[in-house]
């Protein structure tokens, strides 16, 4: 019942997008078709134009079915050990994302704890954390790569994970600052009546009270880590990962490769968010929450 209710609007949007996409494919690719026809001195009919725009090998905008078939070829039909396999490249991106995500959670939670527990921390860390997010990551990424290389950490996993963490720590930090300071006066007073030490207040009250905020931030954070990983791949001279495939596709004029990598990235990001949502649901139930 629930599935059917949500399926209808989603399918409607997808259908509308497909219509627009096919329309745009015809419009954008027809210029090339007309040019070719003019050069050959022929006068193509409208149906000939339409069918040609759907099957060019290097179209301005590939048609949806072309992208799907490229996706199929590079995921299911290719061996996953091949560098042309999107599964192979996707695993690389996934690894970077998860490292960056983990690092981001760790940094975000630690900073939030310092900010909530100490006044000095609050005054000194918060402004810098906000400023850090105003610097375009594209400008910063090459510097991180160079620094990491100079520090002997290589140019592959480490700098890319740092870039991913740089984007993903912020949502966690902001939510956790809010979550750790969410207990009200009454709850804090209650623990004072027990003569509880700050340690107990933190672990028995602040941390569990912050969990809903934490989970809410994870979905944003994992998406940010993923974007960071792809940006990192674009900035590390395109050696591996889905970002590298996109760059190769665009540099070598292979739109199909670019679009297939783009869709693979979107699917992977969706899966990540879906997984985080699943984990959240399980933990929420373990913490006595009502089934939502």
């Amino acid at each position: 019942m629930k599935l059917r209710q949500s399926a209808f609007p989603i399918l409607t949007v997808i259908a509308a997008l497909l219509v627009v996409w096919y329309g745009a494919t015809i419009k954008m690719n027809s210029t090339w078709t007309y040019d070719q026809a003019a050069r050959a001195g022929t006068e193509p009919s409208f149906s000939e134009v339409v069918s040609d725009t759907m099957q060019q090998s290097r179209p301005l905008l590939p048609a949806p079915h072309q992208v799907v078939s490229e996706l199929w070829k590079t995921t299911v039909e290719k061996k996953i050990t091949s560098k042309r396999s999107l599964v192979y490249q996707g695993i690389i991106t996934l690894k970077t994302t998860l490292w960056g995500f983990t690092l981001g959670i760790f940094i975000g939670v630690s900073l939030a704890a310092i900010i909530v527990l100490s006044r000095v921390g609050r005054l000194s860390l918060m402004p810098w954390a906000i400023i850090s997010q105003t610097i375009p990551i594209v400008a910063l990424a090459p510097m991180i790569v160079i620094l990491s290389n100079a520090a002997g950490a290589g140019t592959l996993l480490v700098p890319k994970a740092i870039i991913a963490a740089y984007l993903s720590f912020f949502p966690v930090m902001v939510s956790m600052v809010k979550g750790l300071s969410s207990p009200d006066h009454m709850q804090l007073d209650l623990l004072r009546t027990y003569g509880a030490r700050p340690n107990a207040v933190f672990w028995k009250l602040r941390v569990p009270a912050s969990m809903p905020y934490f989970f809410a931030s994870l979905k944003v954070s994992v998406a940010a880590a993923f974007v960071g990983a792809v940006v990192g791949e674009l900035s590390t001279s395109a050696i591996a990962g889905l970002g590298a495939r996109m760059l190769i596709g665009s540099q070598f004029g292979e739109p199909m490769i670019m679009w297939a990598a783009l869709f693979a990235a979107a699917i992977l990001a969706g899966l990540l968010i879906f997984t985080v949502g699943g984990v959240e649901k399980i933990l929420r139930r373990a913490m006595g929450g009502r089934a939502v």
């Binding site: 209650l190 009546t193 003569g195 006595g288």
Partner: peptide
């Protein structure tokens, strides 16, 4: 208070929802 001489009941029950 530090010797835990009293129990205090507040206006709201204030039970932890996760316990």
């Amino acid at each position: 208070r530090k010797a835990r001489s009293y129990g205090y009941v507040f206006q709201a029950a204030g039970l932890y929802p996760w316990r």
